[in-house]
Amino acid sequence: MKTSPFRAVFNRRSTAMEKYLLAIIIGYIVIVALKNPLFFSVETLFDMLRSGSGVMILAIGVLIVLVSGGIDVSFTAIAVVSGYTSVKLMLALGIDNILFAFMVSIVVGCLLGAINALIIYRFNLPTLIVTLGTASAYHGLMATVLGTKSFPTGAMPQSLVNFGSTDLIVINSDTGRYGLTVFLPIVIAVLVLTWFILYRTMLGRQVFAVGSNEESASRLGINIFRTKLFVYAYSGALSGLMGIIYFSELKYVNPVSLVGTELMIIAAVVIGGAKLTGGEGTILGTILGIVVVQLFQSTLVFLGLGSSWNDLFFGAVLLISLGVMYYRQRIQDRKNLVFATA
């Protein structure tokens, strides 16, 4: 019996973490909807899709790094640096083209990611500390060389503003006009591409192998350096892509924003079931993790709680999820007489 490769996608079993997150999301939505029926509207959905697009792309980059057994905290810096470089270049050369913006930004992001990989591999250093260093170095370098002048809607390249306002579907209602953002197909493309790389190519298998056990992977003949180079360059390229989306969504170019939110995004991916020890993590889990964060960020208002409650809610959910995930692991390990902390 011949099975199509896509059969596996629909027949796959959800991980425990995915089910648990789905339960949280559904429960939360029911509570919010009971409290405030206004929540159930196409408008809310379109709004969340628009504001969540950039974060989703970054989260995919984080996921692939976590799967490879590392942790990257420089991706927000890379996003801002490559986006800002691209905008500066467009203004300097007078090229007002959205494709050019994406191209420059992605190339710069890719390069910065590759530098991360080089340092990590060459000196065999902990990824967290390296990327902590490169994040300040990249951002500081950008600020020193290019400055930190922000560009309001009028001063930034027109193509970026136009791109950010492009809608796929427009719905007019008595509350106003709102549309489905053009970012959505980009996000879907990124998700499909990453899924394909991770689960349908040798490269993806190698990323999982390196994350699970670098020593075994290298003995299998996997080129560790090439795999890591791909992982960090890909994550950098996604950050570059997100940089342009971010600026065109806000219609405001501010090179000192975004940096500082990286731990929040990593937390969202971790909630989705990716493990810091590498080799584990799913795209569906990552999507659910981001949905949880976005839900808290945009809907606590519907519950009558101010935005001050965001962090408290998210922190609590994060700790409880981590607790459930790792406590189960602990019990399992103790049963098998494994005492090592991974």
Binding site: I266, A267, V270, D311, G315, G323, R330
Partner: peptide, 14 residues
Amino acid sequence: SIPPILATLGTMIL
């Protein structure tokens, strides 16, 4: 048994 980096990431937000 939550790894320190994740536990303290969570408590940092909390």
